[in-house]
Design a protein around this nucleic acid. Structure first.
Lengths: 354, 354
DNA sequence: CCGGTAGCTGTAAACGTTTCCGGGAGTTTG
DNA sequence: CAAACTCCCGGAAACGTTTACAGCTACCGG
């Protein structure tokens, strides 16, 4: 009985020793056959049979220790419930699964310490790589990124010279698409409901909005700008504050959740969309198409960015010596009922690219 | 130079050997100090210093191989984008993170082979446990569940005698809550838009609907029942088919995504909600509150179920000899504008429990 | 003054896998 | 027919950690 003890793992499951003993070969041969490399036909047969008989399944941990890779990839986003991240996650998961790896998902809640802790924990080698979409970036963050022992790809704006793989979009340009469209359809008192200004996307969208208005020679009434959180409830509240002091004929929202909140605030106040107020969201998630009226929205290509990020990461895992690379996804505008011109019937859906 | 090679890991990162050598102690002492067990004050100081100087971080894989646990927990759901799973996932992640573990998320796409493959892969020990919410259950599935080498908790209906930890709700009772409410507010031609009947939730909801109608002495017109997928677009299409052949004065939908699709179909056909048709969804996700009018919805306590499932799993991981346990979460109905009585003004929001 | 004990330390064995290396058998070539 | 080469096999080392075990020192009590 003491003999068996040496062949199976602590909890009685078969190991490669069990298989080898049963097949009457060495563990080296057993391992080779199980990995499909080498072995005479006779050996292959014996080992395969033995493995099948005892129901052998290789222990992934031991394999990882040897190979120094876990076939796991992590994704860290602020809010796992935001549909934009869901879309990104779906795209990433698809690429990652196709490569035979699994995806580990972290919700950081946007707390910066949380995120850096996560980055530092990478040092323990539990994942082969990580995709992170930070909404705030500090110097601390950057150093943690740079001396991470495992590959990291950042989705979002990053300093030009940061030596880190990076997938980005031009959200300022995205906002400009929205503003251009609204101006072209006759709106002039265009308001903006943004997320926090101390976040990277928040700041970029704010700058984009101001630049776009200026390009049309429109002077911005600060009463038309309000800031909340990137969430539904915060968007609704922020819009209510805005409506209490100003009369916009259009609203640009920094994401679709905010736009849905804005829609509620507008309807609650008796404004018609798009007749009284045109509404444009951002991220072009499924949510935008679910609303009534359907929301126009600026697509920042979240699925595409996710896909590209996953590809960059897999390439870097395969060859860590690659120079830092950068991918850019162009924004586009999906025009729907919520921003139809006030004067006539809604135009059919139309896509304008970059 | 060959000496250093023995102290640091392949990629040049410090190991416990590096720390031990630097502190002038054995690796056993170093390991003990790093784990906070034993060691003289002098040894502790030296080891701590050495570890800090070289920036030592323990290798989680090696630790796992030794301890036979990964501190990872997996969650497998059909669709990571369905808000009901997002809520469940949030709750689970919170419990799991509090226990110092991490959550691995799988999207099965509802494909049964996918799910059993996942269960079988558990044998490779990459996670300490798994929560799975299958929408289809086969015999194959059940055996895979039962002889899984790691603990599994199932969220959803399961045979009474299945010796598996299980968290469930009574969705038949949930449907009954919706029907009772609609009947009480004067609706009689109540329709039902369901998901696939070959899924466990689909079948249960169908049965629940028929029973509930019968309890009110209403004979069901089969034209008022339509089946699609548990998705937005499928819900919209199914509702369109239903409306093309019948005139319901109320619709019960098997989840909130379907309800949103139904809302669109109704509005597109010129029906007013709730005046012409009352609408009740299921799962009571954030989405229900985001619509206009806000959707009444049957809550199946998804967050609560997630929390309970996570707790059951952690307990079983701690003590695998526990007998199989079962937790039940009662449904409740959140009444909102979409199902207000046709005749008078909407009643204030009201919660009816089980 | 000596046996016993407590506390610390280092050696070595485990965890389960892959892989390097040397040896043996069989096959081809000069 | 010998030499060289190919292929397969088994032993053993490695991956980086934790931990059982035994030895050592120092201290305490009798």
């Amino acid at each position: 009985m003491g003999r068996k003890r040496l062949q199976e793992s602590a909890d009685g499951r078969p190991t490669v020793h069990t298989v080898a003993a049963r097949a009457g070969v060495s563990i080296a041969s057993a391992s080779r056959v199980l990995n499909g490399v080498g072995g005479s036909p006779e050996t292959v047969r014996k080992v395969r049979e033995a493995a099948a008989e005892v129901g052998y399944v290789p222990n992934a941990i031991a394999r990882s220790l040897q190979s120094q890779r876990t076939e796991l990839v992590a994704l860290a986003v602020e809010d796992i419930g935001n549909p934009v991240y869901v879309e990104m996650m779906r795209a990433i998961e698809s690429v990652v699964a196709d490569s035979g790896r699994q995806l580990l998902v972290h919700a950081t809640g946007g707390r910066i310490d949380n995120e850096t802790a996560l980055l530092r924990r990478l040092a323990n080698r539990y994942v082969d790589g990580m995709i992170v979409s930070p909404i705030r970036v500090t110097a601390d963050h950057l150093t943690a990124l740079q001396d991470s022992p495992v590959p990291v790809v950042v989705v979002g704006q990053l300093a030009e010279d940061a030596p880190v793989d990076n997938v980005r979009t031009d959200s300022r340009r995205g906002i400009a698409l929205a503003v251009d469209h609204l101006v072209a359809t006759g709106r002039r008192r265009i308001g903006f409901v943004n997320g926090p200004l101390d976040t990277v996307p928040g700041a970029a969208r704010d700058a984009g909005f101001r630049t776009a208005l200026a390009a049309h020679g429109i002077v911005l009434d600060e009463n038309l700008v309000e800031v909340g959180d990137f969430q539904y409830a915060a968007g609704r509240d922020a819009t209510e504050r805005l409506l209490a002091r100003a009369e916009p004929d259009a609203l640009v929202c920094a994401n679709d959740l905010i736009a849905v909140g804005a829609l509620h605030a507008l309807l609650a106040r008796g404004r018609q969309v798009p007749t009284d107020v045109a509404l444009v969201g951002m991220d072009d998630t499924e949510l935008a198409r679910m609303m009534f009226p359907q929301l126009s929205s600026v697509s920042l290509g979240s699925a595409e960015r996710g896909r590209r990020a996953a590809e960059l990461l897999l390439q870097r895992i395969a060859d860590p010596s690659l120079p830092p690379r950068r991918a850019q996804v162009a924004p586009s505008l999906a025009v729907r009922a919520s921003s139809a011109p006030a004067t006539h019937v809604p135009a059919p859906r139309e896509e304008v690219t970059s």
